[in-house]
Computed example of a mutant assay.
Amino acid sequence: MVVGKATFIKIENVLSDRMASRNLAIAIIFLSQTIAGILGNFSLLHHYVFHFHTEGRLRPRELILMHLTVANSLVILSNGVPQTLAALGLKYFFSEIGCKFILYLQRVGRGMSIGSTCLLSVFQTITISPMNSCWKDLKVRALKYVDFFISLCWIQYMSVNLIFPAYVFYVSSKWHMKNITKKLDLGYCLSIDNETVTVSIYAALIVVPEVSLSGLMIWTSGCMVFILHRHKQRVQHIHSTNVSRRPSAESRATQSILVLVITFVSFYLLSSIFHACIALTYNPSWWLVKTTEVISVCFPVVSPFLLMRQDSTVPTLCFSWIRNTKSPNLTRKNVN
């Protein structure tokens, strides 16, 4: 009995050490994602706000990107921060209202990320389309209604996601979980499937709009590739040997948006597959849940750095405001 008890304690200690190691590893991953994502998105957001302050306006593409950075920041803060704290040992620290609010922020941020990226793709396709194309009538209208469509996206996702969390029940302590067959342990919250959410409601409110917008993004991306290819072929006949063949600013902007859209669709499809696995699994494993959460934060973290790489005017550090705040004075001196 003594040997058996000692062996049991040894095994328990080994398992405890392994759990501590995996929790520390996942905490480092989430913390790294959170820090990098916040630095990148806040740097980009500051750039657009500063540009609006100095110029008095933003171009439609910059306006859409500014709202995209806000949506990305919501996803990172509502996902990365709680997951990091939970992995470091602070478990189930949200009340039921807190859990619903965090879920609400996650879904609004995710929805606006999809909506903003889709709007950006559609707008750029309309912008670069030739005057004899089917997009010609939308060229002028697109410039006028960008603000309206961005506001509509925010209103839609904020309204829809106010309805959806009402069907989900969250608890903040494990003793409520007795006799519950299907649950999802998020670390900071425990989610119970109380069977009030039907597949049709979830599909109508969440899945169908997301899939439709993703399909629209893929289609407009194909249109952009086709338009750029046609333009390149046409320009090759016009260019002389003395003319620089450097891509135009509009072509570079289109290429950066294409990279952004392709990255988004790739991460979105991967995230959707993992979310589907969780939805179809009773009591999904720790690794499946954490992997899904890590993937869901990848695009908000990566996207600002993709934009910075394509646009040299965007600052690469979050504290570049020091340089920017000094630049107007320097500009005035040079003018004088």
Results as ranks from 00 to 15, higher is better:
residue 202 Y to W: 11
residue 96 E to S: 10
residue 311 D to H: 05
residue 98 G to T: 05
residue 119 L to R: 15
residue 99 C to N: 01
residue 101 F to W: 09
residue 19 M to P: 04
residue 324 N to T: 09
residue 223 C to P: 02
residue 101 F to K: 10
residue 226 F to G: 01
residue 200 S to I: 10
residue 128 I to G: 04
residue 89 G to P: 06
residue 202 Y to A: 04
residue 37 G to M: 06
residue 258 L to G: 04
residue 53 H to V: 05
residue 220 T to P: 00
residue 72 N to M: 04
residue 71 A to D: 02
residue 145 Y to D: 05
residue 177 M to I: 08
residue 209 P to H: 09
residue 4 G to Y: 10
residue 301 V to N: 00
residue 118 C to D: 04
residue 34 T to K: 03
residue 59 R to L: 04
residue 20 A to H: 10
residue 309 R to I: 03
residue 32 S to R: 05
residue 63 L to P: 01
residue 253 A to C: 04
residue 190 L to V: 09
residue 164 F to T: 03
residue 165 P to G: 12
residue 2 V to Y: 12
residue 163 I to C: 09
residue 160 V to S: 11
residue 65 L to I: 11
residue 182 K to N: 03
residue 37 G to P: 01
residue 44 L to M: 08
residue 56 G to L: 07
residue 77 L to V: 12
residue 219 W to A: 09
residue 323 R to I: 05
residue 183 K to T: 02
residue 22 R to Y: 14
residue 7 T to P: 00
residue 210 E to R: 15
residue 297 V to Y: 03
residue 57 R to P: 00
residue 9 I to H: 08
residue 111 G to A: 07
residue 200 S to A: 11
residue 182 K to L: 08
residue 238 I to L: 15
residue 65 L to R: 15
residue 251 S to E: 13
residue 115 G to R: 05
residue 335 V to Q: 14
residue 94 F to W: 07
residue 247 P to K: 10
residue 102 I to H: 12
residue 132 N to K: 15
